[in-house]
Amino acid sequence: MSEQHRMASADSAGENLPSLAGHFSNGRLERVLRNGDFAVTAEIAPPDSADAEDVYRRAALFDGVVDAINATDGSGANCHMSSMGVCSLLTRKGYSMIMQISCRDKNRIAIQGDVLGASAMNVANMLCLSGDGVDTGDHPEAKPVFDLDSMTLLQIIRKMRDESEFLSGRKLTKAPPVFLGAAANPFAEPLNYRVHRLAKKVVAGAQFIQTQYCFDLPLFSEYMKRAVDLGLTEKVFILAGVGTMPSAASALWIRKNIPGINIPEWVIKRLKGSDNPKKEGQDICVELMQQLKEIEGVSGIHIMAFKQEESVKNIVNRSGVLDGRVPWMPG
């Protein structure tokens, strides 16, 4: 089969689907969500290598259980393979990608160029983030860019897509058809304003939201109730974030060292009391997924199984949140 044919068949099987009315992208994630199916996404660990096989191997861990894969953009301000690189490799195999874009390392010129490049490579979803401060990562001496923030980044990509022009007003000859996402942290101070901030992201252009780890379900339910009351869940799909804690010690470390992650006492207690804390952490994740699915306005789950990516398949299958639906996989 010629290279051209091979690409074409990968496209028709994977992303770059025919345009549908009322849809903004040609990707599967938007279709799954608009179809009312409960979606599952997961974060891939970008390798510290220049080997494409590393990326393919890591993506294959999610085959058949996720609708789209998040490619992180130097998360925690640590250096890894770029989200652009990971996305370009995986879209070639037909995977549905969510390219994370952080404002920490690139200015508006670089970011808009990446949006066009990524879209040309069939990246259908982009997640707009302000990004972590450089001080938290492995290169604290780096220059923090922060030319934009998550809100203005959302606005700019929406403008590129809907008005077919750069921020400067210069015209594009083809607009990037992207499904736009943003992050939300319902658990960080000021708690009272978090739903308002969500509303602002929707105004800025967010069509789907992936949240920070949800452990505190009473607090999250309250947040969701307010979001539903404000009519936000009719405008944006909310994917609740979950993760697996390998031990009580690491949960305590995260609680102490990573601001904005809320891990309640019951989680620590269960991990401490278990003979097999790694399995206990996965059990907790499965239970949370099942409970989150029942909360009004939750459209899906976003799994951030840091260093436990190989357990994701088992966790999703055990949770039953897909109701027997098998997401696309390369085959």
Partner: peptide, 17 residues
């Protein structure tokens, strides 16, 4: 703001604000 965010706050605010 160390991130010079014009539309904040970010998701990393500590429990003590």
């Amino acid at each position: 703001c160390p991130k010079q965010i014009r539309n904040g706050p970010c998701g990393g605010v500590r429990d003590n604000g």
